[in-house]
Amino acid sequence: MEALVATAVGVMTAAGIFLILRRRTFPVILGLSLITYAVNVFLFATGRLALNAPAVLNKYEDVPYTDPLPQALVLTAIVISFGMTAVIVMISLSAYLSSKDDHIDMTAQDCVDAPGEDA
């Protein structure tokens, strides 16, 4: 089981990194989503894997529990990552609509500095 989780994390990380190195906005967004999955599973797995041992206390018998702390961290991470995804989607959408271009790299022409403002 551990090997499955580890390979899944590795594959998602690799695919995510490959996609964020692309030069258009949409693949970068996809890549970030994949990395988010990978990171969340990674964090979750630092609590070690356990089957049928949710961290919900059982009043009647003594049963083993999985580590609840990484779960709490990952729960908020999932929700926050939605906020992050939404913000980048919005930024790339606005950029595309304003310039009709979805390249993420600025060209040399875009980089021409505004004239110095010092007197």
Binding site: E2, A6, V9, M12, T13, A14, A45, T46
Partner: peptide
């Protein structure tokens, strides 16, 4: 990817 996978495997 290999590094990340190996790391979490080692941790688990």
């Amino acid at each position: 990817g290999l590094g990340t996978g190996a790391l979490i495997y080692a941790i688990m």
